[in-house]
Write a protein that binds this DNA or RNA. Structure first.
Lengths: 180, 180, 180, 180
DNA sequence: TATGAATGAGGGTTCATTCAT
DNA sequence: GATGAATGAACCCTCATTCAT
């Protein structure tokens, strides 16, 4: 799975062949079919797997009782944390989140991820601390911006130092918070 | 080209076949090869074509002498304008901007687009009106957020009404402006 | 036809396209189909046409009453003559004389050509001036040797000067004549 | 390879399709690509392979110390020997020796074959036993005549009995030897 | 259980042929 | 009559998938 992830992230699902994956994993091509029905299933397993890890990372230790700002900080920190550990995974998710090979189940997993954000923004709006934009829009802003930034980190155009992360978090927070 | 654009945007370059494009365009598969040397050239022509239109849209009437805020407004308005006219195009550009089939020329066109943003942010930082983040990061935030929002519009989850656009612009501006 | 001949000789029948021929002839591709039903017919027309000219060249002024040696001289001279005028044609005939696209009629034309040689050799054998080999073998020797020589001339490895031609004729005659 | 050889010899390289070869060989079309990078490589492998075998056949047991006449006999015998074993191969070589798909390496192999003949004729001319024709011409005569004869054997018009071979060898020798 | 040779459907592409102009 | 854009069958080739070992 990690061989497949790397290749899918590097070359895209369609441009990656099963023999490539097998060779990178050091197994025979046929062996892959003992563990995954076919390439599509493999792609979905990886997609769901990492989306779920991402989701779990954010859920883990979420400060439900804390302030909105601190909840936001937790989310941001979790995203960075996941990204650092799984930069291939996030890039893979980004470029394949609308891919033709994804099953309904994968889309649902993805929605689950987005829902965490949704819940957060909904409660933030209730408390008049978050802008009165549709939550889906707020998610799109944070998620889209974050993934694009991550792309820059990936290609080496940006180095994720503490100061930068702090500034980016500030920018994100400014984007969504309600300015009085 | 518009048939190809639609399919490339929907399914991605690799998952789109020439017969699919031909069929959607209502022509024979061979006909495509009278106008484009091969699939790769077709992909690049479309990519460059729309990137250039996007670039031109932003450059057109850019208020160089106006305030940073008004320049930002022009950029945002231009992005919306282009998106409304060419919703497929922007999504196509997004998911293929690092694709393996792109020629050097296409990358340069894309860089040209990003440079407009860069120049804007650089001058904004000089005037102390924009956050002290690397311009590439600021671009990523705006560009990433915008494209993700546009995806929602595309799939019908968001309706781009005047009020929404206004709020989104405000959010974007908050994200990049220097809060005193 | 001459454009087609040149291309067929240079690249072979299969590697020559109708648009190539049209372009070389300075006409539209469709125009060719006003004069030849299809590519196959064109190929056959050319093959037959030149085989017939070759045949006529040899028949023309054949010294039926003269000595075998002089008849041989006439044949050799005619072959050279035809070759000089139509070097493409002979090469085309050589490399396509067993080609898949030839119709029965073309094969018959070709047989007609070989028959002239056959008659000559048969009468020579009767007069005990030609070796007692099957006429088909004698033809093969002269015809095969001549065409291979012609190939060398074509590619510039041999210059067909008078002395060379004389020597080659001598060699050919030695090959077939009965040495007492 | 033998299926390909047969088809290439019968129909020519260009008119032979990979599916034809696969079907004749009783394998799937894709299987061929496990053993040969592409059709061109297959064609060259076959060409070189047989040219090399032909070359080896002549070199094998060549009587360097013997008389020119006996050396000639060895060459002729070798040609016949090779032809009997590989009748398709020689015809394939003949009709493709100038073909567009041949790599430089194949041309060199072919030149190597012709060089054996060249060396033989050169030494024969030195000893005043061979006609004073360019060696390339002498080769063309023997090679061309032989291949044309072989064609007749292939199509059944000539039966290669001992007597015939003896007579043909005599004819060939007469063609090239210096008549005092 | 693991393998990788074999398969053949399907992709990109070419080109003989047609036909509206 | 001449044209050349359009066509689609058929080519070469790739690769997901199978299955005998």
């Amino acid at each position: 799975m990690s061989s497949a992830l790397e290749l899918f992230a590097e070359r895209g699902y369609d441009a990656t062949t099963i023999p490539m994956i097998a060779s990178k994993a050091g197994v025979g091509a046929g062996t892959i079919y003992r563990y995954f029905e076919n390439k599509e299933v493999l792609g979905n397993k990886i997609f769901q797997g990492y989306v779920d890890i991402f989701t779990a990372t954010i859920k883990n230790g979420f400060p439900h009782e804390d302030s909105i700002r601190n909840q936001f900080h937790h989310i941001f920190k979790s995203m960075v944390h996941f990204t650092v550990k799984q930069d291939q995974a996030l890039y893979f998710i980004k470029i394949h989140s609308g891919a033709h090979f994804l099953h309904e189940e994968s889309h649902i997993s993805f929605q689950g991820l987005l829902n965490i954000f949704k819940n957060f923004f909904d409660s933030g709006k209730e408390r008049k601390e978050i802008k009165e934009l549709p939550s889906s829009a707020l998610i799109a802003i944070i998620y889209g911006a974050f993934l694009e930034l991550q792309r820059l980190v990936r290609i080496g155009e940006l180095v994720p130092e503490a100061k930068l992360l702090e500034d980016v978090e500030e920018s994100f927070w400014d984007a969504v918070r309600l300015h009085i």
